[in-house]
Every structure is written in structure tokens, then in C-alpha cells.
Design a protein around this nucleic acid. Structure first.
Lengths: 159, 159
DNA sequence: GGCCGATAGTTAACATGTAAACTAAAAGGT
DNA sequence: ACCTTTTAGTTTACATGTTAACTATCGGCC
């Protein structure tokens, strides 16, 4: 193993140059892994992650919501929402109607079909979450959530 | 605030249904935030995140590397690499040559121009990392890295 | 030595995300 | 009332990622 460790010595200036960098890469990589799994599950129900997100946000809100408000809660940018909303409307999962008080805004909300689909997904999604992260102790996950939230606050702040 | 808390009571079954779900969403959201910032910085140097990743992996390896090995270290799938490699070759940042021992494999490595570009990016990238995550105590980041690694192990395992 | 499965990589078709320019309606100042 | 600015949303053009089908080469096996 002498040559292997020699090569390591040559090629690595230490695996990471800073804790921040390691955290950055770790978050991005973990996120990709998780998102892949989620996408795979949703595809079985003919939903993309974006479509699912929109539905989930609408349910969380509990009342009709302007398109751009939905976009604001995702990372996505306006034009992406326009398309996703089109798709969901054409599949009969949400309704879209022009607001009477401000004719610029279009309000969207789930149809009953959309609500049913979302309910059917609750169990599989929960069970995916458990199967993906269930092996991590809950205390660690709580700690993780705290730290991530702290991280996001700072990122949003220095806009 | 009576009506607000009433509405909350109606529309929320608690913000999350499980720690796992909260962690999942937290990771995905944080990752999106960070990736956006990184992409913005890289764009100023005419690089996409994928292109930068390929370059970084090649530098880390320290010797010519088959295309698919590079793909393996990213989340990406083969065809994506083909295109990214094309772009990098056409911009003179990497070299690509057919292996003599196995003519199926194409080895890629950074050109000196590529190495220079990468070096020029080191400082801005580090400084981005610090500006994005510098407000989180290092001990928290170390803990975060541990937990994320643990999470990834389990996810990879239950393939 | 010729077939057969596996592997490296590419091509093509398509869904998704992003940026920039545009339309329509509201808000506000004069 | 009119004109300018702002805001909600769409359209267009393009870069990126993903899947499936394909080519070329290797390796083993008979």
C-alpha cells in the first residue's frame, strides 16, 4: 500500500480545504441523492417533483393562491410555474381562475381529484422518508434541522 | 391574533408530519439555495456547476481519468458527461484522448489553461463558502457533516 | 477463431429549469 | 384625466438533465 498512500499524499491537499466547503458539498450531494429517490417514487404516480411541490404548497395554504406566491415558496422562477400550472390544470388536478379584485392575478387551488391524489401519496411519501432517513437517530435529525435552518437564515440574509 | 391562530389550527396538522420529512425538505431547500449562489458565481466565469464539478474531480484525481469514472463521482448519468466533456474540450480546458490499452475508454485531464482557470476560482469559491456558511459555528458544521454522511450511507445502502 | 454477454461512450427525443423580452393591469403622482 | 412605474404572468429561446436505443470494443468460452 506504499504506492497508494504516496499517490494520496500527492493528489490530496487534505480532503477539503475548509469545513464550509465540506458542508457545502455534503449538502449538495445528499440533496441530489434524496431528490433522485423522491423523483423516482413520484414518477410512478405520473408527477414530477415540481408538480408535487405545487400541490403540497396549495394544500398547506388551504385556500386559493396566486401563482407567483406559489413560485415564491419554491426556489423556482416565474416561467417555470406557468408551465407546471398548465400541466396540473390540464390534468384536472388544480383549478385556475382570474381574481375578480385584481385581474392581473390568477388564483389556483387543488380540485377534489387533486386532493385525492395528494392524500394517496401521503403514505408512500412518509414511508419513503422513513426508509431513506430512518436509520439516522431522531436526535441527530433534529440537530440537523436546527443547523440547516440556521444556515438558510444566513444565506437568505446576505442577499 | 385570535383569527390567525385559528386559521393555523385549521390548515396545519403541525408543520411537519415527521422529523424525517422535515429533514428531507430542509436538505432539499438548503441545497437549492446554495446551488443557486454557486451557479451565479460560476456563471461570471462562464462555467456551469457541472463543468466546474468535472474540473474539480479531475484535479482531485491528479491523472487522466475515464469519462464514466468522472460521471460516477457526480450524481450525473453518462449522456450528461458526454456533453459537458465536449464543452470543456471545445473551450480548451481539458484534453481527451483514446486509451491505448482499451480503445473503448476515453481519458480526460485538464489542460494547463484549465488548471489556471481552476486556480483562479479557488479563492472566490472559498470566499463564497465562507460568506454563505461562515455564520454557522464550525462545531455545528462538523456535526452537520457527520450527520449528512451517516444519512448518505443509509440511502446508498438501501438501493 | 467465431459467437455472446458485458462495458464505454454516443446519439436522439424529450422534460425541466433559467434568462430576457413582452403584455396586461394596477397604483401613484402631476 | 394622463402618464409613468410597478407588478402578475406569459412567451420565447436556450442550457441542462434524463431515458432509451444504438455503436464499438473487450473478454470469455466453446
Amino acid at each position: 500500500m506504499a504506492s497508494a498512500s504516496l499517490r494520496q499524499q500527492l493528489k490530496k491537499r487534505g480532503p477539503f480545504e475548509s469545513v464550509e466547503q465540506e458542508a457545502m458539498l455534503g449538502i449538495l450531494k445528499t440533496s441530489d441523492l434524496l431528490e433522485n429517490r423522491l423523483a423516482r417514487l413520484l414518477r410512478q404516480h405520473n408527477l414530477t417533483p415540481s408538480q408535487y411541490n405545487v400541490m403540497r404548497i396549495l394544500r398547506g395554504e388551504g385556500q386559493p393562491m396566486p401563482c407567483l406566491d406559489v413560485a415564491g415558496r419554491m426556489i423556482q422562477v416565474a416561467p417555470a410555474i406557468t408551465r407546471v400550472v398548465e400541466q396540473l390544470v390540464s390534468r384536472g388536478l388544480i383549478d385556475k381562475r382570474q381574481s375578480s379584485s385584481d385581474r392581473r392575478v390568477f388564483l389556483i387551488e387543488p380540485t377534489t381529484a387533486g386532493q385525492r391524489l395528494l392524500s394517496r401519496l401521503d403514505e408512500p411519501i412518509q414511508s419513503l422518508h422513513r426508509s431513506l432517513l430512518g436509520h439516522v437517530p431522531k436526535s441527530d435529525l433534529r440537530r440537523l434541522n436546527q443547523i440547516l435552518e440556521k444556515a438558510r437564515e444566513g444565506v437568505a440574509a446576505e442577499a
